[in-house]
Design a protein around this nucleic acid. Sequence first.
DNA 1: AACGGGTGAATGAGGACA
DNA 2: TGTCCTCATTCACCCGTT
Lengths: 211, 211
Amino acid sequence: MTTMTNTILNNEYWNNISVNQSFDFDDLFSSAFNFVLPMKNENTEILLLSSENDHKYSQTLPTNNTTEESQQPSLICGVCGAPAFGYNFDQITCESCKAFFRRNALRYMPDLKCRYSSSCIINVNTRRQCTYCRLKKCFDIKMRKDWIRTEEEKQLRQLIKLTKEQKKINDLSNDQQSLINFSQVLRKKKRLIIKSTNQEFVPKLVNINNH
Amino acid sequence: MTTMTNTILNNEYWNNISVNQSFDFDDLFSSAFNFVLPMKNENTEILLLSSENDHKYSQTLPTNNTTEESQQPSLICGVCGAPAFGYNFDQITCESCKAFFRRNALRYMPDLKCRYSSSCIINVNTRRQCTYCRLKKCFDIKMRKDWIRTEEEKQLRQLIKLTKEQKKINDLSNDQQSLINFSQVLRKKKRLIIKSTNQEFVPKLVNINNH
DNA sequence: AACGGGTGAATGAGGACA
DNA sequence: TGTCCTCATTCACCCGTT
């Protein structure tokens, strides 16, 4: 029954996109949307049932009370509906969807294939069950993957920070003490550099050596 | 970068996947169920009781059990009643029923025909005696066979893993070269710094890392 | 205060082997 | 078949920068 249809749909979809060489997830996504018909998922009922859980969930959460004048408009996550406390990647989301987005938004979509019809309902209870649909929903509500810092950016920030420290030390007198501190910073930086060579920041390093 | 490799690999993979043959056991099962008289299930009460079921997603909750000795809520397997330690395929089960379900849930049901009246009582001692009824009970309590990874999924995961490892190795070998150069640069720089601790070598550092 | 990142215990999937 | 292990993922919490 539906499983069959879903499977076929999925395969058709994936076969199609594999032809397409675009690496832009956004493109992949929009094509996915055009392709997949909204269809009822056999899990739907289960998912809907679980509203009790939702209730319990919101109950138990520490409602940032602090003298109960928590004027927080009690935000809810645009992805899963859990309580949220602010914006993450340009949309109101909970902590877990924030982390989820950070981890997954840059992944290659086909790796996250949905088992069903790419139209899973995402809520607090089901969010863990389908990475594809959760991520799809993140993009749906327009979370910005371009706000995730790249490895390069992270390394750069670190270096800048260390450099600042270094400069501070520099500005101090050049007595023995500062020398000692300095070598500490140097060591730290060296470690950082070595560490960074294990990651995808490498191209930069390689470039340096190629010239 | 390596993403490219991943992509290519993945595309090859997806192109090669045959238009998968979906075995749908739901159908088989529903017919099997029509066949079997609705009978009292000794675990039913447990299942209904299981507002512990809400505990299911308590991972997201701020563990209410804090003060208490975080004793496992002493869960019991919904299939055989043995001690359980968490959810497997969406229901609380013991390790052995988990393994049993993984191994059998995708089998063709008629092969497992019960030699009695398809109403065997399943408990820790009897669970091995009737594969059919044990499996039936698994489905009764709504274990999800669709959460068993398909061959496809397993292969994909494998592929992803291998690709990552490959990448790491690649990066490493690249790095060996760059590391050598880098440490040379570092040494040089260090000498320079020690020689002239009072000057503004800092910008130099930044520049080097920016290229 | 907001909102980036990082961490580590817990969870739950598969696998090996007796 | 059942036990025990490995490993990827999740998310509550915390830190740092702006």
